[in-house]
Computed example of a mutant assay.
Amino acid sequence: MTTSETSTEKTVWRERGAPLLAPSDSGPLSGLRLAVKDVYAIAGHRVGAGNPDWLAEAELESTHAWAVGALLDAGAEITGIAQTDELTYSLDGVNAHYGTPPNPQAPGHIPGGSSSGPASAVALHETDAGLGTDTAGSIRVPASYCGLYGMRPTHGAVPVTGMLPLAPDFDTVAWLARDAATLARVGDVLLPPADRTREDHGPFRTALVAPDLLAPAVPQVREAFETAAAGLASRLGLRREVRELGGDPAERAESFSVAQAAQVRECDGAWVAAHPGALGAETRRRFVWAEDVGAERVARARESVSATARALRHLLTPGTVLLLPATPGPAPSREAGAEERSAVRRAALQLTCLASGAGLPCLVLPRMTAGGLPVGLCLIAAPGSDHALLNLGVADSRR
C-alpha cells in the first residue's frame, strides 16, 4: 500500500478488519458489509468520536449498541469502525486530526458529515451500507454530497442505546447505501414492524412542494429540483400540490442551532472544558458559541422549534410526502475555507432543521445533479411512515 493509500485509509477508517466483526447469526442481511460510525459501542472496542484524546481515554465496550447488535444478529458483518467529524458536531466531513475522507462521486470535494467515514466507505464500494447518525443532517448531507441513498427515521423509532449522544431531542440512528433495496433491507431490521395493511393500500398519494422552502438552494439546484420533483410524481403516480410553510428559513435554522447547542453543551461541555486544546479550531469555535448561549435565548429557540414542528406536521396530512433538496448545493471543494464551509452549513441547516426539529422521517434519493455533482432529493413524511418511505424509494428506483 502506498503512502497516499495509507493516508486515505486513515481518513475513512479508524479500525478495519476482514471483517472486523463477523455476524452473530445468519439472517436477512447475510453477506452485507457494514461500516459503523465511530460513535457506536462495539464490544471489545473503544468509541473514539473523531477525537484522539477522547479515544485515548475511552474504555473497551462490554456490549454492542442496540443497532449494532441488531444488524449483527441479522447476518451483517462489520468491515470496520469508520471516522466521524469531531464529537459529530459538524456537517462537513472535515476532521482536523484524521483528515477529510474522499468523495469518489465528487473528486476534490468534501464528503459531508458527520457520518463522513461511513458515507465515503459506501461510496468507495468498500462496504455495502453505513451505520451513522443524524441529528441536524449528518446522514442526509453526506448522502446528498456522495450520491447515496440515506435514511433518517422517525425520532425514537430506533433505539439509540449505546450510541454517543450529541443532542438527544434530535439524535437518531441513521443509515445509507448505494441502492434503495439495501437501504430498505437495513430498515426492515432496525425499524419496528410496519403496518403492512396500511402500506399495501399505498400510503402516499400527494407529492407536496413548498416553494418558500427552496430559498437557501442555489439556482442550479432549484432548477434540478423542479425536474426531479415532477419526475418522481410522474413515475409514482402522485398528485403534485403546492403549499407554503411560511416563516423565515434563516430564523428557523438559527432557532434549531440554539436549541441543539444547549443540549450539545449538556452532553459534551464538561469534557471539552476539561480538555483545552483537544479540539480542532472549527469544532472549538462551535463549542465556544454553544457555551455563550443563554437560558432565555434557549427557551425562545425551543418554542420556535416547536412551532415549526406543529406547522410542518399540519402540512403532512396522511398520504402526503414533502419534497425538497437535501442540501442547498453540491459538496464544497476540499480547498474551501472555514468561512465558506460555515456559510454552506448555515444554508444546509435551513433545509435539514425541518425534519430534525419535528422528529420526522426522511429519505434521500440520489436523483439530482448541479454542475455535474450529486445533490440529493429529500422526502419527508409523517411520523411512523418510515417503511412507507423506504418502499417508495425502492419503487422509484425500479422505474
Rank of each mutant, 00 (worst) to 15 (best):
G75L: 09
P52L: 04
A76H: 11
A76G: 08
A65N: 03
L60C: 08
L55G: 03
L55R: 00
D85E: 08
L72F: 15
E57W: 12
A65I: 07
A76Q: 11
G50R: 00
A56K: 08
I81P: 13
T63L: 14
G50P: 01
A67D: 00
T63Y: 03
I78H: 05
L60E: 03
S62T: 14
A56C: 06
E77C: 09
T79V: 14
P52Y: 04
L71I: 14
L60T: 12
D53S: 07
V68P: 14
D53G: 05
Q83V: 02
I78Q: 05
H64I: 08
D73W: 06
D85C: 14
A70D: 01
V68Q: 07
E57I: 10
A82V: 05
L72P: 13
D73P: 00
A65K: 11
A70V: 08
L60N: 02
T79M: 10
P52A: 00
Q83T: 10
E57A: 13
G69E: 11
L72D: 07
L71D: 02
N51D: 00
Q83K: 07
L60G: 05
S62L: 10
E61F: 10
E77I: 04
E59A: 15
I81W: 15
A67Q: 00
E57L: 06
W66C: 01
D53W: 11
S62V: 09
G75C: 07
G69M: 05
E61Y: 12
H64N: 15
T79N: 02
P52D: 04
L60Y: 01
L72C: 04
L72S: 09
I78T: 09
